[in-house]
């Protein structure tokens, strides 16, 4: 594909010079575009990071999609359906961005379905009540926004552009979730209990979304050097906590962390230690819903094979007819 053929006009002996030029471009804040020369390692890291992000959007449709048919009124029904639809769109933008690096979407999807690709572990938790939908919008989308706002300045052009589009659309996702919880907290005793229970279950996994401490994160340093990430995991996690705690207080929700306390001097909310055993268990595939999530995606893909094939068969027939008419 002409869009992704890398610029091959110089010899391998230029490698160190090209690498230096590349890093100078990054230092200057330049955008790297698909046809620019890039180190193979940069290309691989981007493919890994972007495809993982896209997979997360797609798998993320499932825990929320679980409640579309049970949404409690028409406005919530439409709001949730629109949100999940946006997630499909986000996955699509990022897959297409990844394809500019010379990999086919089909191959990326194959990696997701055969279990070799990762996706955000947060989506391996079940949505047990309607309040979970509120918690996800507020906390999970909230955490994602902290991450995505940073990624809108990523050094790779197609990724940054996809992220700008996504950030614009995310505005209503978090607000919708927060509004759902705020409404529950103003409701019946059963609704308030439902909201509190959901937050009790989703708070810690949301903090885990920012990944391990920077010292334990193998990819962080490289991604930071290459301008794909601009901030470390811990810094982003702190930013999320600082913005979220006042929001919880405002609607009367208690966050399930007895160590949560405001540090006047530092100007931050200090918080307890994450249960890293749980984090690694879920990341390694033994979370509550890992099998269900992948199972659902495999089924959709398998059930849809004949549909995709039919469309291609039709397109082929049309081309053949056009050719024989022209002849």
């Amino acid at each position: 594909m002409s869009q992704t053929t890398p610029d091959a006009s110089r010899s391998p002996a230029d490698e160190p010079a090209r690498l230096a030029a590349f890093e100078a471009r990054l230092a200057a804040g330049d955008s790297i575009e698909p046809k620019d020369w890039m180190p193979e390692r940069y290309r691989r890291q981007l493919i890994r990071m972007m495809s993982q992000h896209a997979h997360s959007e797609i798998v993320g449709m499932l825990p929320e999609g679980n409640w579309i048919t049970r949404a409690p009124n028409l406005r919530r029904k439409m709001g949730l359906l629109a949100k999940v639809q946006d997630e499909a769109g986000h996955g699509l933008y990022i897959y297409c961005g990844t394809e500019t690096l010379g990999v086919d979407r089909r191959e990326l999807i194959r990696q997701l379905l055969d279990g070799s690709a990762k996706y955000s572990s947060i989506f391996n938790y079940p949505t047990l009540t309607w309040a979970d939908i509120g918690a996800i919008g507020w906390l999970v989308d909230g955490a994602a926004i902290v991450n995505q706002t940073m990624l809108a300045k990523a050094s790779y052009g197609p990724y940054a552009r996809a992220m700008v589009r996504i950030c614009k659309e995310e505005n209503f996702h978090k607000r919708q979730g927060y509004e759902i919880l705020a409404t529950l907290m103003r409701g019946t005793a059963a609704q308030r209990a439902m909201a509190q229970d959901a937050v009790d279950r989703w708070w810690w996994p949301s903090l885990m979304m920012f990944g391990p401490h920077d010292e334990q994160s193998p990819n962080s340093a490289e991604l930071l050097r290459w301008g794909v990430k601009q901030r470390g995991n811990d810094e982003l996690r702190q930013r999320f906590v600082d913005q979220t705690v006042p929001q919880a207080i405002a609607i009367g929700i208690t966050l399930p962390d007895p160590d949560l306390a405001y540090d006047e001097v530092a100007g931050h909310w200090t918080f307890g230690e994450i249960d890293w055993a749980e984090f690694w268990t879920v990341v390694k595939g033994q979370g509550p819903c890992n099998r269900e999530r992948l199972g659902a995606r495999r089924k959709a893909d398998a059930d849809g094979a004949w549909v995709r094939a039919a469309a291609e068969a039709h397109a082929r027939k049309q081309r053949e007819r056009a050719r024989s008419q022209a002849a």
């Binding site: 594909m1 086919d104 089909r106 082929r316």
Partner: peptide
């Protein structure tokens, strides 16, 4: 001009 094999066609992603 890809080969007209249904099984293979189903496995590739539609064109970009």
């Amino acid at each position: 001009d890809a080969p007209a094999d249904d099984a293979e066609a189903g496995e590739s992603e539609w064109p970009l």
